[in-house]
């Protein structure tokens, strides 16, 4: 394990330290590191100092591994290993404990308000952190699922870009299947 330190500068000129192994969770930072730019400070003009520590926390937890708990639980199976007759039960248990622990960590990590969610989603996209992007996008989706358009609008404080006449028409459309607008 390399313990080389990397310095990241936020959009508001604050500098943060991160281990190289943790930084590699970000494709963007990984490319910069591999490009041989380690003796300077990496400016991140699109990430503010409010959000950068949160991103670093995620990277520290995941190191070089790019997946969320979901990915680890469902995907990435080694097929050859999976069909072995007597797979190691202890290993199976350890894996389950690890996934459970990670899920719990993610739950606590993702406990924040909408503004942070928005910023973190953009930061994850900008820094190409697939696991964090999946987590934040899934959280945004979970805040939409099963809600009416009005509830979504209220929840996310979405400003309408429809004319008042169109608004009126939209209000009349209450049935979720009555979505003629979608096929315009």
């Amino acid at each position: 394990m390399s313990s080389t330190k990397i310095f990241l500068k936020s959009s508001d000129d604050k500098t943060f330290e991160i281990d190289e192994t943790a930084a590699r969770a970000s494709e963007t930072l990984k490319n910069i590191i591999d490009g041989g730019c380690l003796d300077g400070v990496i400016p991140l003009p699109n990430v503010s100092s409010n959000i950068l520590p949160k991103v670093i926390e995620y990277c520290k937890k995941h190191g070089g591994d790019n997946g969320s708990s979901k990915k680890i639980a469902n995907g990435g199976v080694d097929k050859d290993k999976e069909i072995l007759p007597d797979y190691d039960e202890e290993e199976d248990k350890r894996e389950k404990v690890r996934v459970d622990e990670l899920k719990k960590w993610e739950e606590e990590y993702m406990d924040f308000d909408q503004q942070v969610l928005y910023d973190l989603m953009l930061a994850a996209n900008y820094l190409h952190i697939k696991g964090l992007l999946d987590l934040t996008v899934e959280k945004a989706a979970s805040m939409i699922r099963g809600r009416t358009p009005d509830q979504i609008r209220e929840n996310f404080n979405i400003n309408s870009d429809f004319t008042p006449e169109e608004e009126e028409e939209m209000i009349l459309i209450e049935d979720e299947w009555d979505d003629e607008w979608a096929f315009d």
Binding site: Q115, L133, V137, A141, P149, I158, E176
Partner: peptide, 28 residues
């Protein structure tokens, strides 16, 4: 907020939503 997201990010959210939820979101 979410309404300021670019279409690419909204599409990412939509990939996690079922059709009625996606339609509800897109009607906004």
């Amino acid at each position: 907020s979410i309404s300021d997201l670019c279409p690419e990010m909204v599409i990412m959210i939509i990939t996690f939503l079922s059709l009625p939820d996606a339609m509800n979101l897109c009607s906004l």
